[in-house]
Design a protein around this nucleic acid. Structure first.
Lengths: 177, 177
DNA sequence: AGGCTATGAATGAAAG
DNA sequence: CTTTCATTCATAGCCT
């Protein structure tokens, strides 16, 4: 994944599984829908109002079946997962050297990477949405990925695993967590 | 599968990761890692907190490369699949029939209508940002409730299948939302 | 050679 | 907003 190829999802607009009749399954966004939503998100939209949601939904319906609640959930999830990701990364990044006690509260307020509402508030920029056919192959996953963790040389010393070696500081009893 | 025994997969084990390719694909847990995780699971741990995840991950890194998200997913999946299995059994138990169940066996990978949205999407619309004026007063749950609607007659009107519908000026300027 | 299974990863939906 | 659940996608490895 890291190398970025997310070749094919059955996404692709068009029909639903049909299967005899309007299977009320969950929404399966088309690539175009995702692209637009992502653009909006990157533009700073985080929590669209009811009106906005409806309008977005309405517009996106051009690309395929969609309901307002899908848009609502999409933003909610996307926002939450970006946060979650960042939170975990930052914890890991601390190299666990710092043993702050109030880590929860302190980690709550790291700066959002870029454009938050404030910026978008006065900007009126224009974005180009790309034509579908260009399977962008690049930034499709750049935001959605958990832990943008490259395969850095996190080499793990392999010390005679499989043997009975007494592990150094390994204490994984539930009580110690 | 299931708790307990993982026969003898050529897992990372003593083989130390990479050496060469260090294939950065998906995480491949070592037998020791799996053993410990399973042990924790059996001890009753189901949904570790972020904190616990981090600690577990940290400890398990002794046995090989691992990230906290791997631990997160591991528990998520393990729990889900245990549940899933139980449910499946009970369902089968209650009734053996059904024709909708065929997906379980063979057609796991069928691609639902692969009619990729034809070239209908050669659009290049413009998206304009707008002031996010909103701190809407309605709560998120209210919004959701508002959106709640069944997917009744909402047939998925697959757009542009074979047809050439010139699309009605998709205007996704945020300012119009 | 491919199919199948186990399982890592992702994400829509919803609960809390 | 945060956390959990359910379902699905993707893939490695084993099997016939």
């Amino acid at each position: 994944m890291d190398e970025g190829f997310y070749i094919n999802k059955p996404r692709g607009g068009a029909g639903h599984v049909g299967g005899g009749g309007t299977k009320c399954g969950r929404w399966n966004p088309t690539t175009e829908q995702v692209k637009v939503l992502t653009e909006l998100f990157r533009s700073g939209l985080r929590t669209p109002s009811t009106d906005q949601i409806q309008k977005i939904s309405s517009q996106l319906s051009f690309y395929g079946k969609i309901e307002s609640k899908n848009v609502f959930y999409w933003f909610q999830n996307h926002k939450a997962r970006e946060r979650q990701k960042r939170r975990r990364v930052s914890i890991i990044d601390e190299h666990k050297e710092n043993h702050y006690e109030g880590k929860n509260s302190s980690l709550r307020h790291f700066t959002e990477i870029n454009l938050q509402a404030s910026e978008a508030e006065r900007v009126t920029e224009t974005l180009q949405l790309f034509p579908l056919n260009s399977f962008s192959t690049e930034s499709e996953t750049d935001k959605l990925r958990f832990f943008a963790n490259d395969c850095k040389g996190n080499i793990s010393f392999s010390c005679g695993i499989g043997a009975e070696m007494d592990h150094p500081t390994l204490d994984l009893r539930l009580s110690s967590l």
